[in-house]
């Protein structure tokens, strides 16, 4: 049953805890760490693709599990220390103006084309884990929409969306907080909403217009597969130029082909582009997260990847020298 439940998007956002029979630590760890839906999806896709790729190559070296927790602890603690130190002692930098990517300009133009009397549907389709990133992108955009006098509604597709909508509206300083309309059924619900032009389906919540009545549909997404659901189940019925998107950085690659094909008019991915967008719309960007800490985290990953390459090259060279000697 689980695959079907997962397919319709109505599964709990967390996986079932491991059963007692699973004794291998690796199995338990993998299950527990892939707790969030988006994490699980992304890891699954990457694992399948990498596994598929790996088959034609010599078998990969098995990791030494005994060293695993040691590495994890040292690197984890080092990284935590660096991030906490930056948060405590380094002030966040002033916002700098930089080059604006084409997809951000496209979104800005679409937003500025909206005027009083236009209807916009804001679809809140993200999870609590990414809410800080999503709120920092979405709050200035919602403030702009509210200032323009655009009529907008908030649709949520996940149960946790009911409280995430309140959090988003209160962060954006929008009063009164608009009622969040819950759309059940995952991709079934999205499809039903897209094809229902005369609002006759009992599935559709009251207060919601037919999708064609909205000048724009603004997707707030943190899951590539959910973004794909909107593109596959709704966009073919609505024609081009309707969808705008604010997506978590992890979905930037997924949105690229849909933007290039014109199914998405414009989008913003991640907090940096979100801050640029806020500036373009004349709004105050939100300072979340601490940008210096983010830079420290990115530099740590760069150093680790370079170290990984160097140590591998060193190990290969040592192996070759040994072979030559023997």
């Amino acid at each position: 049953m689980e695959p079907i439940v997962a397919e319709v998007g109505m599964q709990p956002e967390v996986s079932v805890p491991p059963e007692e029979s699973e004794t291998a630590e690796e199995q338990r760890v993998a299950q527990d760490l892939l707790l969030l839906r988006s994490q699980k999806e992304r890891a699954e896709v990457l694992r399948n693709l990498i596994a598929e790729e790996g088959k034609a190559f010599p078998p990969a070296h098995k990791p030494k599990s005994s060293h695993k927790s040691w590495y994890r602890l040292v690197i984890g603690l080092l990284m935590l220390t660096a991030l906490i130190g930056t948060l405590l002692f380094v002030p966040p930098p002033a916002l700098k103006e930089g080059a604006v990517p084409a997809h951000v300009i496209a979104l800005q133009e679409a937003m500025q084309a909206l005027g009083a009397g236009d209807k916009v549907l804001v679809v809140l389709d993200y999870q609590p884990a990414t809410s800080r990133e999503m709120v920092s992108m979405a709050a200035p955009v919602l403030q702009f929409i509210a200032e323009r006098g655009v009529s907008w509604q908030l649709l949520v597709t996940q149960p946790s969306g009911l409280w995430l909508a309140q959090e988003l509206a209160s962060t954006a300083g929008i009063t009164p907080i608009p009622e969040a309309i819950y759309l059940p059924g995952g991709n079934l619900g999205v499809f039903a909403l897209a094809i229902d032009q005369n609002q006759s389906s009992p599935l559709l919540p009251s207060g919601l217009s037919a999708l064609n009545d909205y000048r724009a549909i603004l997707l707030l997404e943190d899951s590539g597969s959910q973004f794909q659901v909107w593109m596959e189940q709704a966009s073919p019925w609505l024609g081009k130029g309707r969808f705008l998107a604010l997506v978590a950085k992890q979905d930037a690659a997924m949105v690229l082909p849909y933007y290039d094909s014109g199914q998405v008019t414009g989008y913003v991915a991640g907090t940096q582009e979100g801050a640029l967008m806020a500036q373009l719309l004349g709004q105050q960007p939100m300072h979340l997260p601490h940008e210096r800490a983010l830079q420290v985290g990115l530099i740590i990953m760069m150093v680790i990847l370079i170290l990984s390459m160097i140590t591998k090259a060193e190990a290969d060279a040592t192996g070759r020298r040994r072979e030559e000697k023997t």
Partner: peptide, 15 residues
């Protein structure tokens, strides 16, 4: 992309 999103969540939580 995934690392940046995870890092953002981590920094926001620490903050």
């Amino acid at each position: 992309g995934f690392y940046t999103t995870a890092l953002t969540a981590l920094i926001a939580q620490l903050g």
